[in-house]
Nucleic acid binder design. Structure first.
Lengths: 145, 145
DNA sequence: CTAAACCTTCCCATAATGGGAAGGTCAACA
DNA sequence: TGTTGACCTTCCCATTATGGGAAGGTTTAG
């Protein structure tokens, strides 16, 4: 089947399918005219990639998982470990984001939200409480998208 | 002061300081030898940028906030609105990530985690439950870093 | 005077994705 | 048969925010 159909069947764009081939995640056959030719197994791989990307795995991690999937003899322990690592990663990011939300809500509570200019949010941005007299506080912590 | 000191005082790398200048977030003076010359106001702006970046605002949003901060006559309502929008953005992303965590935990619970090969996680990746007989489920939802 | 520690600009790379141009191929229809 | 439109191909560029590093000028300390 052509790349367009593979894209529709897998939910992965044709552009991305070619890219995944470039980084060696799959290797579809080629027809004489140069067109890529996808079979059911290829579509499964694409669905696998799409699904794991949806679950937030990086393409590097996807490549690992895919290798495990292809080699069924590998112990499932590795899969479980990868999943667990990803879970703790996500939970750390979630708690960082929640801390940011708390800070923003606290700041917004001190903001009138009317035509008057006083808005302590902005001043707090320039010299956050706790840093106001101290030197540079080097913690750049929050991962963002 | 030189860029190195401004970097140390603001917690923003020299590389990034030059980049922020390139995208017109600040405009330090130049000395005769071509060196950039930062004053206290510049350092405050850099701290502002660093802080808002830490809070997860994109550089585009930072530029908005910076314009509001510079023009004190603008109503604080806009600041509050931007903050509120960012809060709901973050909360949406948090709940998406928590859904992913739930899914991964559920999958991991069905994985032996020993030397045996059976690990339903991987098969679920290839054809997730609920998609197994149906066509392409197009929801690519989760934003990731 | 020299060496180290700065500074400058310019180019490249990253991760994952999309846009678009230039050109080849195929299928359907008159 | 010819044409048209819908495919496909590769190649290049853009994005976001950041870092690395080279080549070269400057300043400062010894």
């Amino acid at each position: 089947m052509n790349i367009g159909d593979a894209a529709e069947r897998s939910g992965v764009s044709a552009k991305m399918i070619r890219y995944y081939e470039e980084i060696a995640l799959l290797k579809p056959a080629r027809r004489d005219n140069g067109y890529r030719d996808y079979d059911e197994a290829n579509v499964s791989v694409l669905q696998f990639i799409g699904r794991t990307r949806d679950l937030g795995f990086s393409l590097g991690e996807v490549a690992n998982l895919l290798a495990l999937w292809r080699d069924r003899k590998r112990p499932s322990r590795e899969v479980k470990r990868l999943a667990a690592k990803h879970i703790t990663d996500l939970e750390r990011r979630i708690s960082e984001m929640r801390a940011v939300v708390r800070t923003l809500k606290r700041l917004a509570d001190h903001c009138h939200g009317d035509e008057r200019s006083e808005c302590p949010i902005l001043d707090d941005f320039a010299a956050p409480a706790g840093t106001r007299k101290v030197g540079s506080a080097k913690r750049r912590g929050v991962k963002r998208s």
